[in-house]
Each structure stands twice: as C-alpha cells, then as structure tokens.
Design a protein around this nucleic acid. Structure first.
Length: 294
DNA sequence: GCCCAGGTGAAGC
DNA sequence: GCTTCACATGGG
C-alpha cells in the first residue's frame, strides 16, 4: 500500500546494520533490544532489522521514505564494491571479518561538524559531545510514545550564535574555536556546502580544507561519508596502524609514503576498503585472542 | 600516574 | 618536504 504511514519494510541483502551504525561514521545511533534509534535530518526513526528485512518506524507519518533509503544506501550492491578491492591478504581478512559493513550517506553539515569534534577523541566521547550539542542547541523532535527526547543536529546559524565558552561547556575542549569559526563561515553564506557535490574530488577537498579545523583527514571523512566520493581514503590512527601492520610489517614507512601508497593501492572504492580496515583493526583490538578457524 | 583517542596548525629543521 | 609539539578531556 502506498500513502502516508509511520512504518515501512525494506528487503536487505549483505547489510550488517549494527556494524554499520557503530563503525565510527555516525555518532547518534542508540541500540535498545535489537533495535536502533536515531535521527536523520528532522526525522526521529527506529530501525528493526530482521532476516533479510529492515522495518523502519517514524514518530510522525511520512509521505515517502527516500530520505531513509538514501541515508542507508539501500540500493548499493555491496558485492560489486568489494570486488574492486585489491586481492591481497589484509583486504581478504578485513572483508571476512565484517561482512555486510556499509557506508552511510550523511548530511554534510552534521558530518563536518561531528568530525571537527572527533580529533584525538575516542568514538564514545565523540558521541557524548555530539549528544550534548544536540540537546542544548538542536530543535526538539517528535518521538514515539515512551521514548526519550530527541533533537535535530543544530544548524550552523544556531551554533554561530553560541560563544566559545558555551561550546567548551559541551566538553569539546580545544575543538570549540574550530567548530565555532566554521559554523560562522557557513552561516554567513561565504561558504556553500551544497556546491561541493558537483566538484571534482581534489577541488572539493581543497575547498573543505579552507575551513578552520579541517585538515586532510576530516575533509576525506566528509567527502566519503556525506558526499559519497568513494575514492576518498581518510587516514586516522587506526588506518595508519592497519597500513603499517598489515602491509609494511617489517620496515618503517613515513606517513607521507603511506598516504602515497593508500592513494594508489585500493582502487575506485578505496573509501569502502578504508572502512573495512578501520573496523577490522578496532574489532580485532577488542577481541585479540580469536584463533583462526579452518 | 600512564598512554591513547577517526587531528590540526604552527614552528622547527 | 618531513617531523614535532601544544591543544582539552576522559577511558582503560
């Protein structure tokens, strides 16, 4: 049946929702007995994964669900993506360790602001900071009965009106001036985030890096997680560790050389490959004593 | 106490 | 061009 409704079911293949929502791309999803609650734009939404299906529930009836299918990238053929990965041992291990891991397609501003807050922070702490920011500055949203309150991610104009001290009070430390300055540049209209979509990746990256607090790593996260540039390859401490341990275990390679290697080795969907390496290293670190199975 | 966390920008060689 | 350092804050 078509029409306005508060629930909708989708068929899914090769989709590990839990791995995807906890793999350090997005910072607002909460798990509660097999279900995931989050906010996409101005929609509060709850997701119930089942075998081969996904049921989504909103608080307010919606006329269509394109926003959700787009966010979750439901029509991406994952096998086609992983086929483009280099055929080497590290990639085989990383893919085997997290089948169904996906990339989301997020709102550019939320993604940009969240990753400004990410520098030298653990994912749990990034989540805390983002939650505080949304509680204090985001618009309240309708939620399903008996659910805790939810808020939209605050727009640039709202954060631009805050003071640095107020933002520091959200536990973001030295990142506060970066977030504030970037919010102000965007709120002023001098910098148009929507324009980047149509640019070549190198130009879009250079534009993002003009913003205060955005270096190559955060720029690449935004290019990959928000704009869908699949060749963007963010190199954080975990991916750096993956490159060193898995690809160059017995010699010391400089960071610039590793960047150079990454830029050519992983192919057209390098960003996806990067997400598998990231998730592989993090989950491996949590469970070190897992013997290989035949 | 210690080391580390999805870094950036500035200063040093 | 490449490396080092300060910058807040909290988890393990």
């Amino acid at each position: 049946m078509t029409g306005v409704d508060t629930t909708k079911s989708f068929t899914l293949r090769d989709y590990d929702l839990a791995a995807t929502l906890t793999s350090g791309q997005a910072f607002r999803w909460e798990a509660c007995n097999q279900r995931w609650t989050g906010v996409i734009g101005t929609h509060w939404v709850r997701l119930h994964p089942g075998p081969g299906t996904l049921t989504a529930e909103t608080a307010v009836p919606v006329p269509n669900w394109d926003w959700l299918a787009h966010y979750l990238q439901l029509d991406v053929d994952l096998a086609e993506v992983t086929r483009t990965f280099p055929d080497d041992e590290p990639m085989r291990a990383a893919v085997a360790a997290s089948r169904g891991l996906r990339l989301l397609r997020q709102d550019p501003w939320e993604c940009l602001a969240s990753f400004i807050l990410s520098s030298t922070k653990q994912i749990v702490q990034i989540r805390q900071i983002v939650a505080l920011l949304c509680e204090r500055y985001g618009e309240p949203l309708a939620v399903a009965p008996a659910c805790p309150p939810a808020f939209a991610f605050p727009c640039p104009a709202r954060l631009a009106r805050a003071t640095e001290a107020e933002l520091r009070a959200c536990k973001m430390g030295f990142r506060a001036p970066y977030l504030l300055a970037t919010a102000r540049v965007i709120a002023s209209g001098q910098f148009d985030l929507t324009r980047l979509q149509a640019l070549p990746i190198e130009t879009a990256r250079a534009e993002l890096m003009q913003l205060p607090g955005i270096g190559q790593k955060i720029a690449d996260c935004v290019l990959l997680f928000a704009y869908g540039f699949q060749s963007a390859f963010p190199v954080d401490v975990w991916v750096m560790k993956a490159l060193r341990q898995l690809y160059f275990p017995r010699r010391r390679v400089s960071r610039p050389r590793l960047h150079q290697f990454a830029a050519t080795h992983f192919g057209p969907s390098a960003g996806y490959a990067q997400q598998y390496l990231f998730h592989y290293m993090r989950t491996k670190a949590r469970q070190p004593a897992k013997p290989a199975v035949t």
